[in-house]
Design a protein around this nucleic acid. Structure first.
Lengths: 162, 162
DNA sequence: TTATTAAGGATATAAAATATCCCTATTCCA
DNA sequence: TGGAATAGGGATATTTTATATCCTTAATAA
């Protein structure tokens, strides 16, 4: 069970978009080039962010993406779920229905204990993701990336932002 | 990102093995029949449990599986990791290396903030799974399964246990 | 001796992830 | 006003993973 690489791409793209000045847009092309990613496929991940309402888009030259909310109002969970979906990571196939001792027509009322425990763990994962804001990420990145690289990266981005 | 159905199978099988009297063994065939699962494929999941040291096996007629530890000493994490593997659910492909502004030969010292946050969430998931013992599962099942079905199921199992 | 079992290798099939391509409507700009 | 660039989305291809089956081997109980 491994998350799609699109999750990683979306998080890095949002980190870049978080640093974009008010009203500017950044295209798929620029984001793909900056991260060394396949443009067409990255586009699908960005479309997922758009459909989830996390980013705004415009068309035409100088079009592209910008965040729909402030980085403090965007969580890791928002981004992960936009790309990966909201479905739980554990699916109950209700195999207890196959118990040969089970009376005919007997109907299970609620999810079995196995599912419940697994879903609690899933929720713990989501709770942690929910607690991390995009602004936490950009602060951490600003700390760990050398000031010079940080600066030149944003110059690179701004040259291409519409 | 969805866990293998083998995880669900392994958990249900361990719950059954937890109720097996000391020194008895239950075969793949019986476990597959009880849960309505493909015997050959379930066998792979049970082999994973065996390789992880969670169950003991014997060969021959009346052979099969029994738990290697008490249900209180077996956690959900043990079982999930035995089947699903111990690898983290988020893989860092280090796409920051593709940053066109990055100096030649510049070598990132440590995992980037994206990975760290994602791995924290992964660890929260594992911590929750680690906190649930197999004995917690059997207690919950004993509560929610009608007494009659619970009883007849174990009679069914004992008839087939070697 | 015979039947039954777990283990594991080889292979087949189905589903999901990872792309790529192409068409459309919109928007900017010369 | 026309041409270029953009997001959106549908169709399709490729690769990887999950699911499943088959077969052989060694061990074991009756």
């Amino acid at each position: 069970m491994i998350l799609k690489s699109q999750v990683e791409w979306a998080l890095h793209c949002c980190a870049i978009l978080a640093g974009l000045p008010e009203g500017r847009y950044l295209s798929t092309k620029a984001l793909a080039e900056f991260h060394g990613l396949p443009k067409e496929y990255l586009s699908k991940a960005l479309q997922s962010l758009s459909q989830a309402g996390l980013v705004h888009t415009t068309l035409g030259p100088s079009g592209g993406y910008r965040l729909a909310r402030t980085p403090a109002e965007l969580t890791f969970l928002d981004i992960v779920e936009a790309v990966e979906g909201k479905a739980r990571t554990f699916v109950c196939n209700n195999i207890r229905e196959n118990n040969p001792c089970r009376p005919q027509g007997y109907c299970e009322s609620s999810p079995c204990a196995v599912s419940r425990f697994m879903w609690e763990a899933d929720e713990a994962w989501r709770a942690k993701l929910r607690s991390v804001r995009l602004s936490d990420l950009t602060e951490a990145l600003a700390q760990e990336i050398p000031a010079e690289l940080w600066k030149s990266s944003f110059e690179w981005v701004l040259e291409r932002a519409g």
